[in-house]
Amino acid sequence: MLKFTKDHEWLKVEDGTAVVGITAHAAEQLGDLVFVELPEVGKDVEKGGNAAVVESVKAASDVYAPIAGTIAEVNEAIVEDPSIVNSDPQGAGWFFKVKLASAGDADELLDEDAYKKLIAADS
């Protein structure tokens, strides 16, 4: 199940765990990333709470947890090479995996069509 947030994160939920990243639209808006800071494995995150930081040449931006849970795994590859987020934001450029606090929480997030409408309205 692929879901999106209005803060331009995507998450793919399988077996109670969500893989989280930023959308292609967000990656394009941010520009070339030069630094990524990821949460520690085992950290509990609140829905909408700060989970990661990305920095472009110009500015730093927060990445929020789209859902409550516990960080189960992080993608060290994007820390080593932040450009992966720009080249493959919705694939190899994933950020972290969250073990969901409650399995149904993702249902209320945006589906792909709703997210596409949202970014079309923004631009």
Binding site: D32, S56, V57, K58
Partner: peptide
């Protein structure tokens, strides 16, 4: 213009 299509990194 803060940047063009190439982006700040490549423009720099």
């Amino acid at each position: 213009p803060v940047q063009y299509k190439a982006g700040i990194l490549k423009e720099h």
